[in-house]
Design a protein around this nucleic acid. Structure first.
Lengths: 163, 163
DNA sequence: AGTGAAAATCTATAAGC
DNA sequence: GCTTATAGATTTTCACT
């Protein structure tokens, strides 16, 4: 599957009501069939297919992903780790970013403004694994410090009824 | 689609290699066809279908979602908002949780341990909309205070080659 | 649990409106 | 953009291991 090109100004066509409805349905259920999606938003299947393909190619839809319960795969302990980098590490941001993205425990990397540089949403096997992960991060030469907050629960938005 | 029941201890059967391979592929691409998925993990299509259905029904797979670029739908400014609740609001947690989950700007609700109670990952139309959102949160009777950090970038893990 | 093969659906494309 | 038609894939079931 080709990576969609970055949105250029020329590609920014306003999304209409149909597009927004398509997106809402696909966010709620990415495996809905084209026929069902077309009926739900009130367009012909061929139109629906062309619309969705366009949204994908324009990068509005970045991908489709299964949401796996971390606890069900042996990673019941989630945390948010704030990472502050050394001030002289600013020219190696990409390197560190690539590293943390490849850690199997990391589910989201937020690159933030302010005192901290990263927020890492992680899922681990337990307190021992979390402790090890934090220790490994702190041992990295570019890391000035970390703050770890346990996550009791992670919720996504409720699907709206009219989607 | 029926909501899968909460995992009870009886349902916790260890996932085998095939299950893990299926999950890795579906996380990377939730719209892979059953036939292609079956071939990728080395089982028959019918077996693949039964496995995936079982994972879904057991709650290991919680759903399938399109990943929509917030900037492409007019919400280019992301932020992480820490919310600290009033100490006497502890018996209304569910109420506040339900409220924030329904805000259209909110993409993730992390319920955390520590000084703060929530981390809200939000996407807004711009600085004005973000300011309004923060003001609305602070105006809620249960909110003791908020801290907002801008998000420059939000990355998810890189799909592993062997998936 | 897993498989192969049949039956039911669905996707994808194209032509005409 | 819609409808219709059509070929080709795909999903889904089921009898049998």
């Amino acid at each position: 599957m080709p990576r969609p090109a970055v949105l250029s100004p020329n590609d920014v066509r306003a999304l209409d009501e149909v597009d927004r409805a398509l997106l809402a349905h696909l966010v709620a259920d990415a495996r809905i069939t084209n026929a069902a999606l077309a009926e739900a938003v009130g367009v012909a299947p061929s139109t629906c297919l062309a619309r969705v393909r366009s949204l994908r190619e324009r990068g509005v839809i970045r991908g489709y992903h299964a949401d796996v319960d971390p606890a069900a795969v042996g990673l019941p302990l989630q945390a948010m780790i704030s990472v502050r980098l050394q001030s002289d590490a600013r020219d190696r941001l990409g390197e560190f970013t690539g590293l943390v993205r490849r850690l199997p425990e990391v589910r989201d990397v937020y690159f933030v403004a302010g005192e901290d540089d990263y927020l890492l949403h992680v899922a681990t096997a337990g307190t021992g694994a979390l402790r090890d992960l934090v220790a490994r991060l702190n041992a990295h030469r570019d890391v000035a410090g970390t703050v770890t907050s346990l996550i009791f629960d992670h919720l996504r938005p409720v699907p709206v009824p009219g989607s």
